[in-house]
Amino acid sequence: MIKVENLIKVYKSQKGNRSFLQDFFKREYEEKPALKQISFEIGSGELVGFIGPNGAGKTTTLKILAGILYPTSGKVSVLGHVPFDKEKEFLKQISFVMGQKNQLIWELPPRESYLLNKEIYEISDVAFQKHLADLIDLLEAKEIVDKPVRTLSLGQRMRAELIAALIHRPKVMFLDEPTIGLDIFAQTTIVNFIKEYQKQFKATIILTSHYMKDIASLAKRVILIDKGQILFDGLLDKLIRSYSREKTLTIILKKSIPAPLLEKFKLPFEYQMPLLKIKAEKTQLLKFMAQYLSELEFSDFTLQDEPIEEVIKKAFRKKP
């Protein structure tokens, strides 16, 4: 479905910190590698999360896969096509959604843009009506499709954008920060929609997001990318296992802990009534619980994984 081999992308940019005259008469450019020989494959129906800090190369990769950017070197194939050739049959099967970009006509209601897309993607009347009804239903967007785009909130506009981007029911979707800037409710709506859409239509999806929770709730497989290089490509669970050996035990106490007992604790802890928090490896925590839980008076306790953001940070620092 998607095959990338030794992909390199180098951007050329003007050198900074030069005087106006130097710049005018002898402008110098520098080459900045955005992707350094990356390779990966994505199968049909997979949902893959692309994770990396700003400038890591996530969006560049997506734009090359969608045919927007021309690769400096390397081989790219999506649905059997070379993306940059921009063949009509290829473009009709993909969709590129950018969180902060507006593809809808600002002054007119979204429905006008959908009708235009119907012709652009050569969708039959019957299919168009069905796709539109399905998407409106999934995104609960009945109220917004007939209001001018400029009057919609960011969350509403994103829902309207998604309908426009998916009205032709693409086989491959590139979602670049689809939830950026949205409030928690709008984020949840979009994430649930992506999950449901992928389940229903078996689309291949590549998703980038700064919100790790989005990625964690959607993607089984993640690709970690930094400075143009892939650091990890595999199951999110494996990544968590590799980089998150610690868990946090939180105990809600009924009575304060006697000082002699506290002195016995060998693991580092945070203690402030009514909370006792201990962060350690799972085996150590189980041992601690077996040893001391019976001596404590508590109302509840929880054992939590490390937040996904922390795991990713560790993975980037390569510190388990």
Binding site: K63, A66, K88, M98, N102, Q103, I120
Partner: peptide, 13 residues
């Protein structure tokens, strides 16, 4: 400059 050209380049026309 806004990057909206990207949206044009991925359309089948």
């Amino acid at each position: 400059t806004s990057g909206e050209l990207d949206g044009v380049l991925v359309r089948p026309y």
